[in-house]
């Protein structure tokens, strides 16, 4: 690593401390005994955590967010893996075009995508269903899935699959036995990262919820408009902890280097 100048070092430290500051404030406020969101807290109590765990609306929102995140990450990772595998093996020339399509969600404001998504889902007649939310989450998360999966697949010697085929394996069998295990860390990265994004997504999801279904971050957003109760601080702390655990898991099983590698060739 190159040595940094004192100025950039100081700036770096300030940023590193400043970035998680709001989280510390929410964390502190969640243990506040009074009825308002306050920092630093006046008295300490766990009453907001008790409320968060006993109010069924919160439990349901957490549950919904978790399973939507799980389904989204599995589906989007499967799609990315197959797309990356087949373009690399059979149509390497269209990769640039495909990446452009896959990365295009990054170029649009999420509010704009929300409007587009609600129009699309209305046409399909699925606004207010989990299907609509999952479909939107797939579109939002696919760039974050395609990149690590593509990087992992591209580094696999293409002769490995041919070697398996010479020995009699079908392409699917070779994928399962050889390619999948070798790409394990790229796939886990994709699963966890897309899961985290889906779990935290607000803007697009807001357009698609209905009376039957809402996700945790959207629930927080709606709730705060009526009532700035410290229960929100407790809920936020819980969701930060869930996300944090997922990131720790990600770092443990796969490392985070995939996000600093370039995926273009």
């Amino acid at each position: 690593m190159r040595t940094m100048s004192p100025l950039s070092r100081t700036l770096g430290i300030v940023f590193l401390l400043a970035l998680p500051l709001p989280i510390f404030i929410v964390f502190g406020a969640s243990f506040n005994g009074s009825a308002y969101i306050q920092f630093p807290p006046e008295s300490y109590s766990l009453r907001w955590y008790i409320e968060a765990f006993t109010d069924p609306r919160w439990a349901r929102a957490v549950g919904t967010s978790l399973w939507i995140a799980a389904v989204t990450s599995v589906v989007v990772t499967t799609i990315s893996f197959l797309a990356a595998y087949f373009t690399l093996r059979y149509a390497p020339k269209i990769n640039t075009l495909l990446e452009l399509a896959i990365f295009s969600p990054l170029f649009f404001p999420h509010a704009c995508m929300g409007v587009a998504a609600v129009a699309l889902m209305a046409k399909l007649g699925i606004v207010g269903t989990p299907g609509a939310i999952i479909l939107a989450h797939i579109i939002v998360t696919v760039p974050f899935s395609y990149r690590p999966v593509h990087v992992a697949l591209r580094s696999v010697d293409p002769d490995l699959i041919r070697a398996a085929e010479v020995m009699g394996a079908s392409e699917l069998r070779a994928l399962k036995d050889i390619i999948l295990p070798i790409c394990r860390s790229g796939i886990l990265t994709s699963l966890l990262f897309t899961g985290i994004i889906s779990f935290d997504e607000v803007t697009v999801t807001m357009f698609l919820i209905g009376p039957e279904i809402t996700t945790l971050p959207v629930q927080i957003f709606t709730f705060i408009q009526d009532d700035a109760s410290p229960v929100l601080a407790a809920i936020s702390t819980i969701s930060v902890i869930i996300t944090f655990l997922a990131i720790v898991l990600l770092e443990r099983v796969a490392g985070l280097t995939f996000f600093v590698q370039r995926s273009g060739s």
């Binding site: 002769d159 490995l160 041919r162 070697a163 394996a169 295990p181 070798i182």
Partner: peptide, 20 residues
């Protein structure tokens, strides 16, 4: 005729051993 259906074996120039 796909590779799987040909009565062949192969030793690859870059070996292509399964690393896992």
């Amino acid at each position: 005729v796909p590779t799987q259906k040909r009565p062949i074996g192969m030793v690859f120039q870059n070996l292509a051993l399964f690393p896992h």
